[in-house]
Simulated scan of single mutants.
Amino acid sequence: MTFVSPDKALILFDGYCHLCSRSVQLILKFDHQKQFLFAPLSGKIGEEIKNRLIISETIDSIILVENDQFYIESEAVLKIADRLGGLFNLVLVARILPRSWRDYLYKLIASNRFNWFGRRNNCMLPNPEDADRFL
């Protein structure tokens, strides 16, 4: 079952996390090909996709869904950077590290994201010009 067209990828994100919301805004700014769609993890669509793809409830930060496959933690970040291209390709240098190391760093940031970056009172809402990119 396909969730988005093959030329698009879906980013599920924590809409209450300032770091996650800022990351979505950054992706929107540099995604000139409009290849990414977005949905909050805690929303109806996010929950439905997590259930269909059998994604653990313990995954509470970012999930990239691409061609009916999903990527989490550092692999999601690297795949997003790869699709964005340009200066984001610099992030791909992290692939020289073992995935366990990358994921450890990712989990360290993710588990402290509310303490370090804050928590929103309401889920992030898109700007009107980007509303069509949110499911």
Rank of each mutant, 00 (worst) to 15 (best):
residue 66 E to M: 06
residue 22 R to A: 14
residue 110 A to R: 11
residue 87 L to K: 02
residue 125 L to S: 11
residue 18 H to F: 06
residue 110 A to D: 13
residue 25 Q to Y: 01
residue 77 V to D: 15
residue 56 S to V: 04
residue 75 E to V: 06
residue 43 G to F: 03
residue 108 L to V: 01
residue 131 A to L: 04
residue 99 R to Q: 09
residue 37 L to H: 08
residue 35 Q to L: 11
residue 70 F to Q: 02
residue 52 R to N: 12
residue 86 G to M: 01
residue 76 A to G: 03
residue 93 V to N: 09
residue 81 A to R: 08
residue 56 S to L: 07
residue 57 E to D: 15
residue 35 Q to N: 03
residue 90 L to W: 11
residue 121 N to V: 01
residue 105 L to W: 12
residue 117 F to W: 04
residue 69 Q to D: 14
residue 77 V to G: 05
residue 48 E to R: 01
residue 48 E to K: 02
residue 53 L to M: 00
residue 95 R to N: 09
residue 118 G to L: 04
residue 124 M to Q: 09
residue 58 T to P: 09
residue 87 L to H: 02
residue 126 P to A: 09
residue 41 L to S: 10
residue 37 L to A: 03
residue 121 N to K: 07
residue 62 I to G: 03
residue 91 V to E: 12
residue 122 N to Y: 09
residue 69 Q to N: 08
residue 89 N to I: 00
residue 99 R to M: 02
residue 90 L to E: 12
residue 18 H to Q: 06
residue 127 N to W: 07
residue 26 L to M: 10
residue 51 N to R: 05
residue 129 E to R: 03
residue 69 Q to T: 04
residue 19 L to E: 08
residue 69 Q to M: 02
residue 74 S to P: 07
residue 70 F to K: 11
residue 37 L to T: 09
residue 87 L to N: 08
residue 72 I to P: 00
residue 135 L to Y: 12
residue 51 N to W: 01
residue 50 K to I: 10
residue 79 K to Q: 15
residue 133 R to S: 09
residue 102 R to T: 12
residue 70 F to D: 00
residue 29 K to F: 07
residue 109 I to Q: 09
residue 115 N to W: 00
residue 125 L to I: 07
residue 20 C to F: 04
residue 57 E to G: 12
residue 127 N to R: 14
residue 65 V to P: 02
residue 124 M to T: 15
residue 26 L to D: 12
residue 20 C to H: 06
residue 52 R to K: 13
residue 23 S to N: 12
residue 49 I to R: 06
residue 34 K to A: 14
residue 89 N to W: 10
residue 68 D to M: 05
residue 73 E to G: 05
residue 129 E to D: 14
residue 29 K to V: 06
residue 72 I to K: 13
residue 61 S to F: 08
residue 122 N to Q: 15
residue 54 I to V: 10
residue 131 A to H: 01
residue 63 I to L: 07
residue 50 K to V: 09
residue 96 I to Q: 13
residue 24 V to C: 07
residue 24 V to N: 11
residue 52 R to W: 00
